[in-house]
């Protein structure tokens, strides 16, 4: 069985973000990291692999060539191999365009039983790439999963989903696409053996030509960007607890917030 985990390399969020040409996020020279939600998606796949060692776990990334160093960390944790779709023509690709590229790569990888994505990226935050990939591949989707069990013999996946104000247990037949949110477990860290093994694992580099697709046309144009209006300076309340509480209550009433 084969599982593809879609992983995005995002700017490490502790670094300040900047916008450059065409209001796009400046990524070069900014420390990269695996998108936190994708790390959980990878962990779900690796847990499946713990139980079923012959499971083929493929990491798929669309991004610049320097994403390799970060993909290697996924291989060190236990993924079997990786595909990096890298193409100068893909710079500035929007969410649906990204989904088109990922779907084409998943088709080329072939015989995929499950696709796992993080629920959203920390930099784009659109949360639509996973469902768009599912639509392109005509797969059912289970989104915002906290946990998921793979039943290889029944060819189903059963997930605990976090939906607005409720927890849903849902099952889909394979092949299916899952998006994973912060799970109830922490992603594993790579150990020394894993890091050594990663050096021997393959990272295939594909372009849009290899996928047999044209770079997706841009459907969304960012026309302006800027800093939000400054919030008015904070009103600082000090004094005894009773005094502060009284001033707070007064503020809430005056502002009609209660």
């Amino acid at each position: 069985m084969r599982v593809v985990v879609c992983v995005k390399v995002v700017p490490d969020t502790t670094e300040p973000k900047r916008l450059g040409d065409q209001h796009a996020l400046v990524r070069s020279g900014v420390q990269g990291a695996v998108n936190p939600m994708d790390d959980y998606a990878l962990e779900v796949a690796l847990k499946w692999k713990d139980a079923q060692p012959d499971l083929d776990v493929v990491v798929l990334t669309m991004g610049p060539d320097d994403a390799r160093a970060i993909i290697k960390k996924c291989l060190a944790k236990g993924a079997d191999r990786a595909v990096l779709v890298s193409d100068a023509a893909l710079a500035g690709t929007d969410a649906i365009g990204t989904a088109r590229v990922l779907a084409a790569a998943i088709r080329k990888i072939g015989d995929v039983d499950a696709v796992l994505c993080g629920v959203r990226s920390s930099d784009g935050e659109s949360a639509v790439v996973g469902p768009a990939v599912a639509e392109l591949l005509d797969l059912p989707q289970l989104t915002t999963c906290k946990e998921a069990d793979l039943d290889a013999s029944a060819r189903t996946v059963t997930a605990n989903r976090e939906v607005d104000g409720a927890l849903e247990v849902a099952r889909a037949g394979l092949p299916a696409l899952l998006t994973v949110t912060k799970a109830s477990f922490e992603p594993r860290l790579a150990n020394f053996k894993g890091i050594q093994a990663a050096n021997k694992k393959e990272i295939l580099g594909w372009t849009t030509a290899d996928l047999g697709i044209a770079p997706p046309a841009r459907q969304v144009l960012v026309t302006a960007a800027g800093e939000p209006p400054q919030r008015p300076a904070s009103q600082v309340l000090t004094g005894t607890a009773a005094e502060v509480a009284q001033k707070l209550a007064q503020y809430l009433t005056e502002q009609k917030l209660v």
């Binding site: 649906i96 989904a99 639509v128 768009a132 639509e135 989104t143 841009r218 459907q219």
Partner: peptide, 17 residues
């Protein structure tokens, strides 16, 4: 969010989230 991406693919359009 569950529907937006799927619908955009159907309509061959973009998503502004």
């Amino acid at each position: 969010k569950d529907i937006a991406g799927r619908l955009a693919v159907r309509l061959d359009c973009g998503v502004i989230a």
